[in-house]
Design a protein around this nucleic acid. Structure first.
Lengths: 244, 244
DNA sequence: CGGTCCATTGATCTGCCTCAATTAACGTGG
DNA sequence: CCACGTTAATTGAGGCAGATCAATGGACCG
């Protein structure tokens, strides 16, 4: 992964000085750990010493429910923080699991916290990342109450857009290293119905999905059936800001 | 409402100096506006100049969907911010509506932002408020996929606990100034099914709900059927912290 | 008292779940 | 490189939780 993945993401919101950029680059390259697929990066109840940042691969924010089933509440892709909130809340109220093999940077949370205190730009950029996560979550609440076809279409649009914003969409094609069972856990549906819904989307010519590769021939059309509007992702907020 | 509602809430997380307390008290009492029930406090797409803080009454975070229906994504009770994120993200991606007549403080966002920059404690306390909102939202995602009885029981437990934390539960009783239609919009169910579900809860002796007053004879029992565990609300995080 | 909003009840319908079995893809060791 | 076990995806049949449609009853209010 490029060393400046996080820099690039945060710059989408707040302008960073060269100094700040190199600090971030340094922090995200010092302590890197890899996790195999299906392993826990952070467990529910943990009090991690580090803030974990996904550098490569996909992970999921999840909770085990009373009946033993698992609910996924977010997909994490490169550039996403697993537990930025741990600088403020002390204990994880959910777990983070690697969906594919993951390369994860472990940032010293005390140092990050300190750094953010000194650097207003950085604080705001981290706030921004948190608030966008929250906006995504609101959309998941909405999605959960919508018909399967629209919900899945919307989810795929979200993932497409986020992958695109970090340069991981080439030629309308992106890697989607998740099983249908995991998509089911993320949408609150059964794997059986996810399978049927994906087939509906395929038959409608809206997606091509084989192996773990997703091709979206017409993103507008998929957005239409999903009722997707990317404004809630607040992308390139900083660029717009500077243009004014 | 007591002038120190927000102070009391934030102190639950971070210790505040007398100086900070009086600053907050001043800010939350300078510019107060009241909104009638069913009116918009902030509309989708707005770029408010103020950060809005609910002082009295209930409000809801909502979005109008493509089919014209409305989805509620959060209930706001006294002490809750409507749009704290507006200091970072510029535009609302959803609306805020008064459910009952609301008294709302309008805080100058530039001044609040400035104040937070100088006062580390305050920054952290505001972060905490945001992160708790996010944790609540995660629980709503989970709830949306669960059977109606459990989902509604859980929602009532959440509201009970939050109202309790700001001293608005007396004798296991609290005001719930929402219609069943609004509960339906918050749970993704129909008003008809909300009505039937509430009756199930009543028949099970878990709640007494008439007019807009909720009485919970046995909170443990209700928590049991809702699968409710309040740890995700991260209440009195600061107190615990100080005890260590 | 008459209108409006809200809650309730009944009957019917359907999207998604459940259960169960088959096929395809994948990795692993012989 | 093929045989085999394992995991993932697909297909079918039947059931149910919750939606929909429609009507009634109750509370509040001018």
């Amino acid at each position: 992964m490029e060393p400046n993945l996080l820099v690039r993401k945060l710059e989408g919101y707040a302008p960073l000085s060269d100094d700040e950029k190199s600090l971030i680059e340094k922090m995200t390259s010092e302590n890197i750990k890899t996790y195999p697929a299906k392993s826990d990066i952070i467990a529910d109840g943990d009090r991690p010493d580090f803030v974990h940042l996904v550098l490569d691969g996909w992970a999921a924010r999840y909770k085990i429910l009373h009946d033993g089933s698992r609910r996924i509440m977010a997909f994490l892709i490169p550039g996403d923080f697993c537990d930025l909130h741990i600088t403020v809340l002390r204990q994880m109220d959910h777990g983070i699991m690697a969906l594919s093999p993951c390369k994860v940077a472990r940032l010293d949370s005390a140092r990050l916290s300190e750094l953010a205190t000194e650097r207003t730009n950085l604080t705001k950029a981290l706030w921004w990342a948190t608030l966008v996560d929250e906006a995504v979550l609101r959309q998941w609440v909405i999605n959960a109450g919508r018909p399967a076809l629209a919900a899945v279409a919307h989810l795929l649009c979200e993932l497409h857009q986020r992958m695109k914003s970090i340069g991981l969409v080439t030629d309308r094609q992106l890697e989607l290293p998740v099983t249908q069972a995991e998509l089911a856990e993320a949408t609150g549906m059964t794997p059986v119905h996810i399978s049927r819904t994906l087939q509906n989307l395929r038959q409608a010519g809206l997606i091509e999905l084989r192996a773990h590769s997703l091709f979206i021939p017409d993103i507008e059309a998929l957005a239409e059936t999903g009722g997707f509007d990317d404004s809630y992702l607040h992308l390139r907020e900083g660029e717009k800001r500077r243009q004014e």
